[in-house]
Amino acid sequence: MAIEKFEAVVENVAGLKVSCKSRDFEFILDEPKNLGGTDTGMNPVEALLNSLGACKVIVAKSFARLHKIKLKNIRIELEGELDPDGFMGKNPNAKIGFSKITTNFFIEADNTDEEIANFVDFINRTCPVADTIENGPEMISNIIK
């Protein structure tokens, strides 16, 4: 199968508020007031957690039948730990991004605990967003005038 490319365009709206666009979709990201924003949208790290959770739910829904999981419902709650002193430059020893991400799966299915645990392992191994976080891609930055 050919490599698929996904694109995003992010532009400043005002202050720390940004518009995020892909295909025909758009959403706003901002920072909370205590971090200098206007609190009109999630901040980027919250969006990252939501993207990770959404990816895991989509993987679960897409592969449940193949894995003989009788999935009735799935909810995922995520928590990321981040020390703002890292990206603010206040503590050179603090990690800039998340130091830990915890995913809590709430799965309602007519399966054994072992079957569900094996399925969660599969979800974590198969989620493209999780793989991108765990095994960082090559990052290229171009300056275009």
Rank of each mutant, 00 (worst) to 15 (best):
T38R: 13
A109Q: 01
T112G: 01
L48Y: 10
K33D: 02
K145V: 12
I58L: 15
I58W: 07
K5Q: 15
F106M: 06
M1Y: 08
F63V: 06
M139I: 15
M88A: 08
I133W: 05
S99I: 12
N142H: 14
G37P: 10
N50M: 05
A47G: 11
E4N: 02
S19Y: 01
K5A: 05
G53Q: 04
I3A: 15
T126Y: 06
P32H: 06
E114T: 02
I143E: 07
K72G: 11
D83W: 13
K70C: 00
L49P: 11
K90A: 03
K90M: 05
E79S: 15
A94K: 10
F105G: 08
A117K: 11
M88I: 06
E46T: 06
I144T: 10
K33Y: 04
K61P: 09
A60C: 09
N142D: 12
N135P: 05
C127G: 01
C20G: 09
E77N: 15
I116Y: 00
E7W: 09
P44T: 04
S62I: 07
E31C: 07
L49N: 07
I133L: 15
P128W: 14
S141A: 12
V9R: 13
T102N: 11
V10P: 01
I28H: 14
G80M: 08
G53P: 06
S99W: 03
K70L: 01
L35W: 11
D121E: 14
P128G: 08
M42R: 13
E7M: 08
P44E: 03
P128M: 08
N50C: 11
I116Q: 00
F122H: 09
R125Q: 12
D85F: 11
L71F: 04
A2T: 03
T126A: 14
T112Q: 03
A130S: 14
E108V: 00
A47Q: 09
N73W: 00
A8P: 00
P32K: 07
